[in-house]
Design a binder for these strands. Structure first.
Lengths: 192, 192, 192, 192
DNA sequence: TATGAATGAGTATTCATTCAT
DNA sequence: AATGAATGAATACTCATTCAT
């Protein structure tokens, strides 16, 4: 339907504009007027698609988080061997964080600011479950260290956020070889 | 001297108020008026001690970063064996991040937002050198993986930021035993 | 068009309010809030029509200057005899300065204060050219003293500013007869 | 007396600083703090010598005006012939306006702003009396046009303010020869 | 006499949001 | 659905003035 598409078009233009502005200048310098201008609509139009600024930010957060989670499990099946499954997920995450920098950077900013409502933040996590299940299986099989999922996440996945940030600031660049060594470090950290 | 103390008193009250407000509401909702109120002074008084808001934030960042760096190397000597040295530093960092939550949380927010000038951020890093030197020595001795300092940092130190955040949000708590296991994961990640 | 008129309406209300306030209290005591109030709009509305205060002042200056210049050459033609042409211009200027006191007084204030950007001030002068050309012709014809245009202006036109100021302060009033004598003084000053 | 001198010293340093700042940036950008700094005293010290800012400005105005008036009548005697007397006064004024630019420029700014209290402005005029008397005598003797002193002043003296302003802005410079021609214009304007 | 610290009241400007069209 | 105009409330910052010392 043309009409439906048009609506989606404007809404996603707004979300995209917000992503860009928040990344470039931070939450504190991403006014609605600039968002509207960058999206090519009038300020008042934003309020046809979003209740208010908080809702716009929350929506963007959830959407980006969902895209991230979906990306993470691309090619993964529950019944894969633990290491193989982890490897696939890890490389997916690395791929996302190091290449979809805009989105990854935005998530990083959201995860370290009181700007996002705690409730929304929790909702954004729910799609991560398959990875937690995988680790549970790995622990049962004696392959993964018997650590809390928080600790496992902090060593297996979280470091990539740091490397993404360094790359974003042009302080460091990862090539394929280094990426493999980095995966090795992740695996060493969590494997028994 | 009473006078000097008084000055320091007001200045540090302002820094402390800023720390609290930025942590609680984010940079974008920590107006000078609230900072002044929390510090018990008039808004105009802030400008006796800081040039402007950016300067206040920068100053706070550098001060907190300095206190963190100082804390990190407490009890450490250059001529310690690599693992021992790393252990001391790691536990110091863990101690700081998990107990001085306000400060650690603030640093985390600063490191993931464009609110701090890049120049200032770089200045805040310079005291980390001893750890980088230690890793260099470890690499030469064949104890540490031959990885970039960015990768080593991301696996050895950065995960603690995540655990700190989880603890701050009351989602997780580390006891002594878990902390030791967590150290083990860090060491496994970077050791050869 | 109703819409267009409305815009012009508010913009010119703001210009008019600024003129009044700057005249009454000086540039230093004509805050945006008072300007807005006198114009019957909210302070923020000013910024829909003007970039900032300086731009508002500059715009007003140029507009008033333009109206003055236009008024000055009313009924004047290049091919008039020198004395006749000067007479027409002089009486026009006198008419403006002595009757459009608000505008004239504002220009006087602007011309003696660093509040107007020099660049803008220069722009405001460019419409004076026909008078300068007339004087040039008069010099060639041996009717006007061979003096710099600055000197000619200072004696032919500038004195009216003083008389306007005196009248504005109710210290003096010019009637028709005195005006004619005053013109005679102007002419005596510049004629050969 | 050393003490008295010291007081005068600070007071005149303040007046001089005010003159400089008002000339350079206008009334609206000559804050007490800058005045104090330029005079080499603490802000609070200003209030030992002047009641408030208005009083400081008024005092400065009267002082400069007095110095101007005194300068104007240097070498003049009541019993001189009218033209000779006028010549002396006119050249004195020209000398002051074209050389003591700072002071003259300040007076010009004051004379065109509502910043100076009308009462003070009147007080500043009282020393001009000898010139008015001279013109009165000239009128009686049939040498000067029978015009109001306001008109005479506007043609005889006021033009110099314009020429001073042009010179101050580096748009024009008067040498001795031009000055003589300019005097001629003044005399032609007012003589019968 | 002199001051540095302190501030209440103000200043220009911004911004999320509304509303008539 | 879409918007341009409008604004109340806020924001960072300034300044003339005071006061304890």
């Amino acid at each position: 339907m043309i009409k439906k598409e048009k609506i989606t078009d404007k809404k996603s233009a707004l979300l995209s504009a917000t992503l860009t502005l928040v990344n470039d200048h931070g939450f504190h310098d991403a006014p609605m007027s600039k968002i509207a201008k960058l999206a090519g609509v009038a300020p008042a139009t934003i309020y046809l698609y979003f209740e208010n600024k908080q809702n716009l930010i929350n929506t963007l957060y959830l959407e980006v988080k969902a895209s991230f989670n979906k990306f993470a499990f691309n090619g993964y099946h529950e019944d894969m061997p633990v290491k193989k499954g982890f490897e696939i997920i890890w490389y997916n995450v690395a791929d996302y964080k190091l290449n979809q920098i805009k989105e990854a950077s935005f998530l990083s900013q959201c995860d370290n600011t009181p700007m996002i409502d705690e409730e929304i933040r929790k909702e954004g996590l729910k799609h991560l479950q398959p990875l937690l299940d995988l680790w549970e299986k790995g622990k049962e099989e004696g392959i993964i260290k018997p650590l809390s999922i928080f600790v496992l996440y902090s060593y297996a996945i979280y470091p990539l956020s740091f490397l993404m940030a360094m790359q974003d600031r042009n302080l460091y660049t990862l090539d394929k070889k280094v990426l493999d060594e980095t995966f090795r470090a992740a695996w060493d950290a969590i494997k028994l």
